[in-house]
Amino acid sequence: MMDKPVNNRAWFLVLPVLIVVAFSAVIPLMTVVNYSVQDTFGNNQFFWNGLGWFQEVLESDRIHAALGRQLLFSAIILAIEIPLGIFIALNMPKRGFWASLVLVLMALPLLIPWNVVGTIWQVFGRVDIGLLGHTLAAMGFDYNYVNDPVDAWATIIVMDVWHWTSLVALLCYAGLQSIPDAYYQAARIDQASRWGVFRYIELPKMGGVLLIAVLLRFMDSFMIYTEPFVVTGGGPGNATTFLSIDLVKMAIGQFDLGPAAAFSLIYFLVILLISWVFYTVMTAQRETP
């Protein structure tokens, strides 16, 4: 038997990583933690406030409402973009010139910066000069995203679907491309229906990428800020004030650093929690023997 030498100095080798992570994540986060437990009356003088800010945030009707809107928004986004993305991926050409062309077209929306997307739709939806808004108005629809909360929501949802469904479709497409032909041939031999092929071959094989798509779309939609900020600015009223918009109003508009810091931490934990639930549920269902 060979004795393995034990040398704790090996831990020093981890030091560079610790330093990088400290500067990139831990220290900025601790700054926020620091603000969240203190109060100030200016002059850079801080007082210990314990969990007061957290309590205030957790009891705030305003933040509850924003959280409700945020959850509703993410739920609608996932409910539209995931099935639509799968549907598009299933119908994309598998190879040849058209496959390349479709891939490029699908990737285009993903290349546009968030604020530009917001600007595009802000103009596009305007009743006076926007193609969409003007056309709808001309057709007799009472559409106006500036005044009507439902129209504002519809505009932001359509915009997000336009911007991000491609991502889901491309991920699913990659998953579909990796299925060997023999699976489809076996399904034909077994006389599986089109639904059977989807349910028992395509969907299980897409499982991995679909998990990534759901997580990415959830996190991204739950943190959405720029597009609604550009299009509606959170309005009309507070109708499209999502968590990030509310947070920025609180931190920068009102300069309430303490509550904003507590809010940030809770926000972060909520995203972490929901992502963990998604991940656990989706992988558990895949791994049950």
């Binding site: 023999a182 076996a186 031999i189 077994d190 006389q191 028992y200 969907l203 299980p204 094989k205």
Partner: peptide
């Protein structure tokens, strides 16, 4: 016709029993 391929083709999410029953069920 029944055909068996060079590399295994199984329906991942089904149990062994469901796999075997699939062609008959269809």
């Amino acid at each position: 016709i029944a055909q068996v391929f060079q590399f295994p083709v199984v329906y991942d999410t089904m149990t062994v029993r469901q796999n075997l029953a699939f062609p008959l069920k269809n």
